[in-house]
């Protein structure tokens, strides 16, 4: 491929500089090592969706303003659209596809979302669930006000919000 500007290929002192063309990358996603060849500018979200065919993480805005792309990196919920895929090398990425058990048994939060009808179109749902599970682990489920605030990074245009809270409560209470 063509590269514009000789400075791009120079290595910074002491740093291994990669790109700007496609470079081999190994990502650990949902417990499996995945190899891909991508330009360094590729976001984690596009790497997952376009290169690894993991389309559970959704692109709602590509600007960090909707939460539909929420995944976990090293167990913490983050936005895949504002994360470079290369920066995730050596880290563990978990997407909605990695949440259910190996035999396909749904995570309790997934079951609760179905039981509480906590979605309609389903587009924000993977992000909501990744946030909801993280929220529970973070301990931010004491009451509805806390759940509301700590789930507010995930927009739902169908406005299933009361039902999303019900699902989080159900998992919290083991009901």
């Amino acid at each position: 491929m063509s590269v514009r500007g000789p400075s791009l290929t120079e290595r910074g002192p002491g740093l291994e500089e990669r790109g700007p063309g496609p470079v081999p990358v190994t990502l650990s996603v949902n417990g499996a090592e995945r190899e891909l060849e991508i330009e360094p500018r590729v976001s984690l979200l596009d790497a997952l969706r376009e290169h690894l065919d993991l389309t559970g993480p959704k692109k709602g805005c590509d600007q960090g303003a909707c939460g539909a792309c929420t995944v976990w990196v090293d167990g913490r919920r983050v936005l895949a659209c504002l994360t470079l895929a290369l920066s995730c090398e050596g880290r563990e990425v978990t997407t909605i596809e990695g949440l259910a058990g190996p035999d396909g048994e749904l995570h309790p939060m997934q079951r609760a979302f179905i039981a509480q009808d906590a979605f309609q179109c389903g587009y924000c749902t993977p992000g909501q669930i990744m946030s909801a599970v993280a929220l529970t682990a973070e301990g931010h489920t004491r009451d509805d006000d806390e759940i509301k605030e700590w789930m507010s990074g995930n927009l739902c245009r169908c406005a299933a919000y009361p039902h999303i809270r019900a699902a989080v409560r159900a998992v919290r209470d083991g009901t």
Binding site: V3, R4, S7, L8, G12, P13, G14, L15, E16, E17, R18, G19, P20, G21, E39, P40, R41, L84, L86, S87
Partner: peptide
């Protein structure tokens, strides 16, 4: 998004030297 290169800094001095010496 334009093409970029990516490097991971192992120490602050290396990072500072690299960025300081290249306005882009």
């Amino acid at each position: 998004m334009r093409l970029i290169t990516y490097s991971r800094a192992a120490d602050a001095a290396g990072a500072i030297t690299t960025v300081s010496s290249d306005p882009t």
